[in-house]
């Protein structure tokens, strides 16, 4: 009833030199409206592939995705995306980058109104003084702030975050996590994020989806995170459940994520035998 985003039996097959390779298989997930869900897993396990399929930037081999009762088909501004690299257009100022999306979504609004929206979100992410600078003049962290402002300014149904803080130093990462959490809370937006940072997942999420390693990656375990909101980093880290949850996540990543590995390796060793024989 309450499910806002529904992912059914998602499958992704990439063609490769060794024939088609199944990256993700049997991925089922439902997100409630306003929920913050993090997908965690090892690099290359296919978690970003799942997110890009929700974004519509990667084609779906099999299965389906329904957002707010409508099956998704291709990309669209109803899903705000924050990429790992901020993907700003370097010939436009921060504000022009944000405006590009606003003009697409709020095309009926007056120009002054659209500018107001852009300025509002840039101010909220802390760029009031730098909105007329080009990306080349901004630090990596500031560029990602623009990326976040651009995604929120679209008033999307959903927010998709692909390791958005992966390229930042830890201090900047902490700052931006707080900025993101605050904006998410105020906008009551459904969010799906991909990360491999355990602490980031615990600080931000309502639920953490643990993915097994590819090929044929799927969901291994789903962990509920019930720290009270609004969250404060210090309070979260001092919560009695924090280290237990953290240990569980790390154990999953270290032990259970690999459990499919031997089966996946089997055909490879079989061909090796065939070659020697």
């Amino acid at each position: 009833m309450n499910d806002y985003l529904e992912i059914f039996n998602l499958k992704k097959v990439y063609p490769s030199a060794k024939g088609p390779q199944t990256i993700v298989q049997g991925f089922n997930l439902k997100l409630r409206k306003g929920e913050f869900v993090t997908v965690i897993g090892h690099s290359g396990c296919g978690k970003s592939t799942v997110l890009m399929m929700v974004a519509g930037l990667s084609t779906i081999t099999d299965g389906g995705i329904v957002l707010a009762g409508k099956e998704l088909d291709g990309p669209g501004p109803d899903r705000g995306i924050v990429f790992q690299s901020p993907s700003l257009l370097p010939w436009m100022t921060a504000k022009e980058n944000v405006m590009l999306g606003i003009e697409q979504v709020f095309f009926t609004a007056e120009k002054a109104e659209r500018e107001q929206i852009a300025e509002y979100y840039l101010t909220v992410v802390g760029l009031a003084d730098s909105m007329h600078k080009k990306p080349g003049e901004l630090s990596q962290g500031m560029r990602q702030r623009v990326g976040i402002a651009r995604a929120f300014a679209l008033k999307p149904k959903m927010l998709l975050l692909d390791e958005p803080f992966g390229m930042l130093d830890s201090l900047t990462r902490y700052e931006l996590q707080a900025v993101l959490l605050e904006l998410w809370r105020k906008n009551k937006i459904t969010a799906m994020m991909v990360t491999h940072d355990v602490d980031e997942a615990l600080y931000l999420s309502d639920r953490i989806v643990c993915m097994t390693d590819g090929p044929e990656a799927g969901i291994g375990e789903i962990i509920e995170v019930n720290f009270p909101r609004p969250r404060d980093r210090k309070a979260v880290m001092e919560h009695p459940d924090y280290y237990q949850l953290r240990a569980r996540l790390i154990e999953f990543l270290e032990v259970h994520a690999h459990k499919k590995k031997p089966a996946a390796l089997a055909p490879v060793s079989a061909t090796a035998v065939a070659i020697t024989a």
Partner: peptide
Amino acid sequence: TDYMNVARVLKLSRWKTLTKVMIPA
């Protein structure tokens, strides 16, 4: 690809994709 993805996500028209993204790039 990042720039083209921005254009795809925002559903820019062909003309806008050309003038705002492809030509400057």
